[in-house]
Amino acid sequence: MKKTICMIPLYVWTLVFILVPLAIVIYYAFISDPHGDASFSLDGFRDFFSNPVFAEVLLRSLKIAFISTLVCILLGYPAAYFLARSKSRFKFVVIILMLLPMWINFLIRTYSWLSLLEKTGLISTLLTYMGFGPVDFTGTEFAVILVSVYDFLPFMIMPIYITLLKLDQSHLDAAADLGANPAKVFFKITLPFSVPGILSGVAMVFVPSVTTFAISQTVGNGKFPLIGDLIQEQYMVVSNWQFGGAISIVTMAVVLLLMYFINRTDSDENGGGILQ
């Protein structure tokens, strides 16, 4: 009984902020003329598939999210590994420094990159000084990926770090005693053990970077339309909620499907991924 009472806030939260909004999105996606006769219609989906430019936008978003996630793993895994293995007194300082930027508002962090990347920005000015400039990094795929990685990297490091903390040193010692070299210990024990952490990290990096719109509008100079921009514009500017809802549902379906396959490849051996 006590447990049920404790769960009420969670239920309410889920209902009010997840299920109800989701229901509203789905409702508008399938209804034409919501202020008039509000009849069932698939026009939103038809519009999406009738012009290849929209699928292109979705593919571009998936590609950028995929690259960002990959870079996050390549950068984040070693960081998490050494943090988890480290016995240094300064470990917590490093963790705090890593998390510190997360205490600053996401938009401010993203905008700050503009002053670094633009043609009259810090990096370009330095390059000019050294005789290479001026270079404008904004409005490129590179800038969008760079800032995505910057914004989402801690979400990759933390779950891997926490998983690796639970790895018992005696397992590694045992493997070494039985003659495995360090590389073999890593690939046979450490890496498989940390897969659930990586999967959580992937979910926490990939999904938000597919749907981000602030990053492409700032360092992408607004000429790098991603699926998030398209959805945002349908709701806020064009006020075509049906099309906006349809794009949201298509995007959610694609992302869920991808996450399902990523998780399934692993579920034979391990548990604990975020979607299991």
Binding site: N51, F54, E56, F224, V238, F243
Partner: peptide, 15 residues
Amino acid sequence: KEYYNKIWTEIRSSR
């Protein structure tokens, strides 16, 4: 107006 919205979305989705 709807036609403007449609072509605007197409313009802003292209690059």
